[in-house]
Design a protein around this nucleic acid. Structure first.
Length: 266
DNA sequence: AGAGGGATCTTCT
DNA sequence: GAAGATCCCTCTC
Protein backbone atom coordinates (compact mmCIF):
# COMPACT_ATOMS: atom_id res chain seq x y z
CA UNK A 1 0.00 0.00 0.00
CA UNK A 2 1.48 3.34 -1.02
CA UNK A 3 2.23 5.60 1.85
CA UNK A 4 0.54 8.94 1.85
CA UNK A 5 2.97 11.75 2.25
CA UNK A 6 1.99 15.30 1.70
CA UNK A 7 4.59 17.49 0.17
CA UNK A 8 6.10 20.30 2.21
CA UNK A 9 5.35 23.25 -0.01
CA UNK A 10 6.73 26.73 0.18
CA UNK A 11 6.00 28.41 3.42
CA UNK A 12 3.83 31.46 3.73
CA UNK A 13 5.57 34.58 2.67
CA UNK A 14 3.94 37.10 4.93
CA UNK A 15 6.62 38.95 6.78
CA UNK A 16 6.78 39.42 10.48
CA UNK A 17 9.82 41.55 10.79
CA UNK A 18 9.22 42.80 14.28
CA UNK A 19 12.24 41.54 16.12
CA UNK A 20 11.94 40.81 19.77
CA UNK A 21 15.67 40.99 20.20
CA UNK A 22 15.61 44.65 19.25
CA UNK A 23 13.34 45.37 22.17
CA UNK A 24 15.51 43.72 24.76
CA UNK A 25 17.19 46.08 27.14
CA UNK A 26 20.53 45.38 28.71
CA UNK A 27 19.58 46.38 32.21
CA UNK A 28 18.63 42.86 33.24
CA UNK A 29 21.79 41.09 32.29
CA UNK A 30 22.09 39.51 35.68
CA UNK A 31 19.73 37.18 37.39
CA UNK A 32 19.69 35.27 40.59
CA UNK A 33 19.01 31.56 40.41
CA UNK A 34 15.57 30.64 41.71
CA UNK A 35 15.08 34.26 42.71
CA UNK A 36 15.95 33.30 46.22
CA UNK A 37 19.13 35.25 46.51
CA UNK A 38 21.03 32.32 47.92
CA UNK A 39 23.54 32.21 45.11
CA UNK A 40 25.60 34.92 43.58
CA UNK A 41 24.34 36.46 40.34
CA UNK A 42 25.63 34.90 37.18
CA UNK A 43 26.05 36.38 33.77
CA UNK A 44 23.84 34.55 31.34
CA UNK A 45 23.79 36.64 28.20
CA UNK A 46 26.12 36.99 25.36
CA UNK A 47 25.69 38.79 22.09
CA UNK A 48 26.09 36.52 19.13
CA UNK A 49 27.74 38.85 16.60
CA UNK A 50 27.05 36.49 13.74
CA UNK A 51 23.36 36.32 14.51
CA UNK A 52 22.99 39.84 15.85
CA UNK A 53 20.78 38.80 18.70
CA UNK A 54 20.87 38.29 22.43
CA UNK A 55 20.69 34.71 23.41
CA UNK A 56 20.98 32.70 26.59
CA UNK A 57 24.32 30.95 26.94
CA UNK A 58 25.74 27.82 28.50
CA UNK A 59 25.68 29.28 32.02
CA UNK A 60 21.91 29.49 31.85
CA UNK A 61 21.50 25.80 31.04
CA UNK A 62 24.07 24.68 33.57
CA UNK A 63 21.80 24.56 36.61
CA UNK A 64 19.99 21.76 38.41
CA UNK A 65 17.13 20.16 36.50
CA UNK A 66 14.19 21.50 38.52
CA UNK A 67 15.73 24.94 38.66
CA UNK A 68 16.25 24.94 34.90
CA UNK A 69 12.72 23.68 34.26
CA UNK A 70 11.36 26.70 36.14
CA UNK A 71 13.86 29.11 34.63
CA UNK A 72 12.75 28.17 31.11
CA UNK A 73 9.30 29.56 31.85
CA UNK A 74 8.84 32.97 30.29
CA UNK A 75 11.90 32.66 28.06
CA UNK A 76 11.56 32.79 24.30
CA UNK A 77 12.38 29.90 21.99
CA UNK A 78 13.47 31.17 18.59
CA UNK A 79 13.76 29.20 15.36
CA UNK A 80 15.21 30.28 12.05
CA UNK A 81 14.03 28.33 9.01
CA UNK A 82 16.22 27.70 5.97
CA UNK A 83 14.39 30.46 4.09
CA UNK A 84 15.40 32.95 6.77
CA UNK A 85 12.03 33.28 8.42
CA UNK A 86 12.17 33.54 12.19
CA UNK A 87 9.58 31.96 14.48
CA UNK A 88 9.26 32.75 18.17
CA UNK A 89 7.25 31.48 21.10
CA UNK A 90 7.25 32.07 24.84
CA UNK A 91 7.78 28.95 26.93
CA UNK A 92 4.85 28.45 29.31
CA UNK A 93 5.16 24.79 30.35
CA UNK A 94 8.04 22.38 31.05
CA UNK A 95 8.75 19.08 32.78
CA UNK A 96 11.84 18.00 34.72
CA UNK A 97 13.24 14.50 34.17
CA UNK A 98 15.83 13.98 36.87
CA UNK A 99 17.88 11.05 35.58
CA UNK A 100 18.93 7.91 37.45
CA UNK A 101 16.50 8.00 40.35
CA UNK A 102 13.52 9.09 38.22
CA UNK A 103 11.49 6.09 37.03
CA UNK A 104 9.77 8.20 34.37
CA UNK A 105 13.00 9.34 32.75
CA UNK A 106 14.47 7.69 29.68
CA UNK A 107 17.73 7.78 31.63
CA UNK A 108 16.32 5.99 34.68
CA UNK A 109 18.84 3.86 36.58
CA UNK A 110 21.58 5.51 34.56
CA UNK A 111 20.45 3.67 31.45
CA UNK A 112 22.26 5.13 28.47
CA UNK A 113 21.27 4.03 24.97
CA UNK A 114 21.72 5.22 21.44
CA UNK A 115 18.52 7.14 21.71
CA UNK A 116 19.13 9.09 24.88
CA UNK A 117 22.86 9.90 24.85
CA UNK A 118 22.02 13.60 24.54
CA UNK A 119 20.62 13.49 28.07
CA UNK A 120 24.13 12.71 29.29
CA UNK A 121 25.83 15.39 27.24
CA UNK A 122 26.72 18.87 28.59
CA UNK A 123 23.94 21.12 29.84
CA UNK A 124 22.24 22.88 26.96
CA UNK A 125 22.40 19.88 24.61
CA UNK A 126 19.08 19.22 22.86
CA UNK A 127 17.56 15.76 23.19
CA UNK A 128 14.98 15.15 20.46
CA UNK A 129 13.28 11.78 20.32
CA UNK A 130 10.45 10.37 18.30
CA UNK A 131 7.38 9.15 20.11
CA UNK A 132 4.48 6.98 18.96
CA UNK A 133 6.22 6.62 15.64
CA UNK A 134 5.03 9.97 14.36
CA UNK A 135 5.83 12.81 16.74
CA UNK A 136 8.89 14.50 18.21
CA UNK A 137 9.61 15.89 21.66
CA UNK A 138 12.29 18.48 22.48
CA UNK A 139 14.29 18.31 25.70
CA UNK A 140 17.33 20.20 26.91
CA UNK A 141 19.92 18.57 29.13
CA UNK A 142 20.59 20.18 32.48
CA UNK A 143 23.09 19.82 35.26
CA UNK A 144 22.99 16.31 36.73
CA UNK A 145 23.78 12.91 35.21
CA UNK A 146 21.16 12.06 32.59
CA UNK A 147 18.85 14.91 33.62
CA UNK A 148 16.89 16.97 31.10
CA UNK A 149 13.95 19.34 30.76
CA UNK A 150 11.06 18.65 28.37
CA UNK A 151 9.63 21.74 26.69
CA UNK A 152 5.86 21.20 26.61
CA UNK A 153 4.14 24.37 25.46
CA UNK A 154 4.75 27.75 23.90
CA UNK A 155 2.70 30.86 23.51
CA UNK A 156 3.19 31.73 19.83
CA UNK A 157 4.65 35.22 19.30
CA UNK A 158 5.97 35.51 15.78
CA UNK A 159 5.21 34.00 12.36
CA UNK A 160 2.01 32.33 13.46
CA UNK A 161 0.97 31.85 9.86
CA UNK A 162 4.03 29.72 9.22
CA UNK A 163 3.44 27.74 12.41
CA UNK A 164 -0.14 27.09 11.32
CA UNK A 165 1.04 25.95 7.91
CA UNK A 166 3.55 23.54 9.44
CA UNK A 167 0.94 22.19 11.83
CA UNK A 168 -1.60 21.68 9.07
CA UNK A 169 0.73 19.49 7.03
CA UNK A 170 -0.39 16.41 8.96
CA UNK A 171 -4.00 17.33 9.54
CA UNK A 172 -7.17 16.60 7.63
CA UNK A 173 -8.13 19.15 5.03
CA UNK A 174 -11.61 19.33 6.46
CA UNK A 175 -10.44 19.82 10.02
CA UNK A 176 -11.25 22.93 11.95
CA UNK A 177 -8.82 25.81 11.68
CA UNK A 178 -6.33 25.93 14.53
CA UNK A 179 -6.70 28.80 16.95
CA UNK A 180 -3.54 30.72 17.78
CA UNK A 181 -3.39 29.23 21.23
CA UNK A 182 -3.56 25.68 19.80
CA UNK A 183 -0.47 26.02 17.63
CA UNK A 184 2.13 25.04 20.26
CA UNK A 185 0.18 23.80 23.32
CA UNK A 186 1.83 20.39 23.56
CA UNK A 187 5.33 18.92 23.33
CA UNK A 188 4.93 17.50 19.84
CA UNK A 189 2.79 20.36 18.61
CA UNK A 190 5.57 22.82 19.31
CA UNK A 191 8.01 20.61 17.44
CA UNK A 192 5.67 20.55 14.43
CA UNK A 193 5.07 24.29 14.59
CA UNK A 194 8.81 25.09 14.73
CA UNK A 195 9.84 22.26 12.39
CA UNK A 196 12.06 20.67 15.02
CA UNK A 197 12.92 17.05 14.24
CA UNK A 198 15.47 14.35 14.95
CA UNK A 199 18.19 16.29 13.13
CA UNK A 200 18.36 18.62 16.13
CA UNK A 201 19.21 15.80 18.53
CA UNK A 202 22.55 16.28 20.31
CA UNK A 203 22.96 19.87 19.10
CA UNK A 204 23.84 22.74 21.47
CA UNK A 205 20.98 25.15 22.18
CA UNK A 206 23.54 27.73 23.34
CA UNK A 207 25.32 27.83 19.99
CA UNK A 208 23.07 26.46 17.27
CA UNK A 209 22.34 28.72 14.32
CA UNK A 210 18.84 27.44 13.65
CA UNK A 211 17.37 27.44 17.15
CA UNK A 212 18.16 29.39 20.27
CA UNK A 213 16.76 30.85 23.49
CA UNK A 214 16.20 34.52 24.31
CA UNK A 215 15.48 36.23 27.61
CA UNK A 216 11.77 36.96 28.01
CA UNK A 217 10.59 40.41 29.02
CA UNK A 218 8.52 39.44 32.04
CA UNK A 219 10.18 38.50 35.29
CA UNK A 220 8.40 35.59 36.95
CA UNK A 221 8.33 34.76 40.62
CA UNK A 222 7.46 31.53 42.41
CA UNK A 223 3.90 32.80 42.84
CA UNK A 224 3.48 32.75 39.05
CA UNK A 225 4.46 29.09 38.69
CA UNK A 226 2.26 26.03 39.22
CA UNK A 227 3.93 22.70 40.01
CA UNK A 228 1.89 19.65 38.99
CA UNK A 229 2.26 15.99 38.11
CA UNK A 230 3.83 15.18 34.76
CA UNK A 231 1.77 13.97 31.81
CA UNK A 232 1.69 10.53 30.20
CA UNK A 233 3.92 8.68 32.67
CA UNK A 234 1.39 6.75 34.73
CA UNK A 235 3.58 3.66 34.47
CA UNK A 236 6.19 5.32 36.72
CA UNK A 237 4.63 4.47 40.08
CA UNK A 238 5.48 6.95 42.82
CA UNK A 239 7.41 9.09 40.39
CA UNK A 240 4.27 9.65 38.35
CA UNK A 241 2.84 11.73 41.17
CA UNK A 242 5.74 14.02 41.87
CA UNK A 243 5.19 17.69 41.00
CA UNK A 244 7.82 17.95 38.28
CA UNK A 245 5.69 19.69 35.66
CA UNK A 246 5.83 23.47 35.79
CA UNK A 247 3.66 26.00 34.05
CA UNK A 248 2.86 29.69 34.17
CA UNK A 249 -0.31 30.25 36.15
CA UNK A 250 -3.11 31.54 33.96
CA UNK A 251 -1.16 31.17 30.70
CA UNK A 252 -3.48 30.48 27.80
CA UNK A 253 -1.36 27.88 26.01
CA UNK A 254 -0.70 25.42 28.82
CA UNK A 255 -1.53 21.95 27.48
CA UNK A 256 -3.31 20.62 30.58
CA UNK A 257 -4.38 22.70 33.56
CA UNK A 258 -4.26 20.98 36.94
CA UNK A 259 -6.97 22.59 39.04
CA UNK A 260 -6.16 20.54 42.11
CA UNK A 261 -2.53 21.58 42.03
CA UNK A 262 -3.58 25.21 41.62
CA UNK A 263 -5.88 25.05 44.63
CA UNK A 264 -3.11 23.63 46.76
CA UNK A 265 -0.64 26.24 45.60
CA UNK A 266 -2.44 29.32 46.89
C1' DA B 1 -16.19 18.33 28.54
C1' DG B 2 -14.74 13.78 28.41
C1' DA B 3 -13.98 8.90 26.49
C1' DG B 4 -12.23 5.97 23.12
C1' DG B 5 -9.69 4.44 19.27
C1' DG B 6 -6.56 4.86 15.23
C1' DA B 7 -2.34 6.44 13.23
C1' DT B 8 2.55 4.90 12.89
C1' DC B 9 7.44 3.19 13.75
C1' DT B 10 11.67 3.51 16.51
C1' DT B 11 13.65 1.62 20.41
C1' DC B 12 14.69 -1.81 23.45
C1' DT B 13 13.65 -6.54 25.52
C1' DG C 1 7.07 -8.35 19.84
C1' DA C 2 5.36 -4.63 22.75
C1' DA C 3 5.29 -0.20 24.46
C1' DG C 4 5.47 4.55 24.19
C1' DA C 5 7.24 11.90 28.03
C1' DT C 6 1.19 12.28 21.60
C1' DC C 7 -2.25 14.09 18.67
C1' DC C 8 -6.54 14.08 16.25
C1' DC C 9 -11.01 12.70 15.08
C1' DT C 10 -15.53 10.93 16.42
C1' DC C 11 -19.00 9.81 19.46
C1' DT C 12 -21.64 10.62 23.58
C1' DC C 13 -23.43 13.15 27.58
Amino acid sequence: MPRKRRRVSNLDDEEHKSSISENLSTDSLLLTQDGKGDSSPISIYFVDEKMKTFRLGSDFFNQPCISLAKSFLGQILARKLPDGKELRGRIVETEAYLGGEDDASHSTRGKQTGRNVAMFMPAGTMYVYQIYGMYFCLNVSSQGEGAAVLLRSLEPLQSLDTMRHLRNLRRKENGKALKDWELCNGPSKLCQALDINKSFDRRDLARDEEVWLERGTEVLGDQDIIAAARIGINYAGEWAKKPLRFYIKGAKCVSIVDKTAERNTT
